[in-house]
Design a binder for these strands. Structure first.
Length: 286
DNA sequence: CTTTTCTCCTGTATGC
DNA sequence: TGCATACAGGAGAAAA
């Protein structure tokens, strides 16, 4: 499930294999892949004809290819999206929804997505280099624009659960269910604790851990549990061998040995240690 | 306005 | 064996 480190691995692959090349033809074949492109799939394909890719950029889980005009091709991988660079005669994947051909007759770029939560869209690039359709997303912890003190201040005034805040991409971007659980385990905080009940240093520590765990995952090529996530060459990451919380229900906590638990939160699974991360006391009825 | 819930999708695993 | 069900979850629309 691509979160920031996995998307960054894909961005680097695109930087190496696609930037500088000239698109001669784009085929949009999936019925849902262009649903966030307001003008529709035909318009998207037409406007991707005869353009040069000048950069591959990212904010949080959003990825985009800057084109030589004033637009960027926004790529979101959703749950299962892949950007694959492959020979044009490679067998077509079952869930391939878009294909790009280049003037150098080199390998094709393909967008493959089994669960179709991902998608492609064109959006104007703003002067600050961020596409309009990504402007509502907050900077991620690896950007110069990231202001952790400001994020801590905004979190401190929220009465919602801290895990919910970590997953809110308009507060800080790039963190998904896996790295949220890892950061909370490292910080020894239960995800249902209210932001407002935590001290600013604790909130800062959680964000520091989120940064660190994503940096470590990136160093290992990202996290993957199955064949759904691969980089542009088709290789998977290995960080899942280093997870302490996510998916660890029923196994011993790496810190204290207690059996890890799984709980439902926000209609998703959350993994934590009952001893290191005690549940908050129930909110007093008001 | 802010915050929370619902919904989109398909392959894999599990249970009867 | 076959069918039904649960599960995975990012993000935006809809609801509260």
């Amino acid at each position: 499930m691509p979160e920031l480190p996995e998307v960054e691995v894909v961005r680097r692959g695109l930087e190496d294999h696609v930037v500088g090349r000239h698109v001669t033809r784009a085929r949009i074949t999936g019925v849902r892949v262009a649903r966030r492109h307001d003008a529709g799939p035909e318009d998207l394909a037409a406007r991707l004809h005869d353009v040069t890719v000048t950069a591959a950029s990212r904010r949080g889980k959003y990825l985009w290819l800057a084109l030589d005009g004033e637009d960027a091709l926004i790529v979101h991988l959703g749950m299962s999206g892949q950007m694959l660079v492959e020979p044009a005669d490679a067998p077509l994947e079952k869930h391939c929804h878009a294909r790009f051909d280049f003037s150098d007759d080199g390998p094709q770029l393909r967008f493959v997505d089994q669960r179709t939560f991902g998608g492609l869209a064109l959006s104007p690039l703003r002067p600050d280099g961020i596409p309009e359709s990504v402007a509502h997303i907050a900077p991620d912890p690896f950007e110069p624009a990231y202001d952790q003190a400001a994020v801590v201040r905004r979190m401190k005034q929220r009465d919602s659960a801290v895990k919910r805040a970590l997953l809110d991409q308009t507060l800080v971007s790039g963190i998904g269910n896996i790295y949220a659980d890892e950061a909370l385990w490292r910080a020894q905080v239960h995800g249902e604790r209210l932001c407002s009940s935590l001290t600013k240093p604790t909130l800062a520590r959680i964000l520091d851990h989120a940064h660190d765990v994503m940096a470590e995952a990136l160093g290992q090529g990202g996290t993957s549990f199955d064949a759904l996530y691969v980089n542009v060459n088709g290789a998977s990451g290995y960080f899942d061998r280093s997870l302490h919380a996510y998916g660890r229900a029923g196994t011993q906590c790496d810190r204290c040995g207690t059996i890890m638990r799984r709980e439902q939160f926000m209609n998703r699974s959350s993994f934590s240690c009952p001893v290191c991360q005690p549940r908050p006391r129930r909110r007093s009825p008001s």
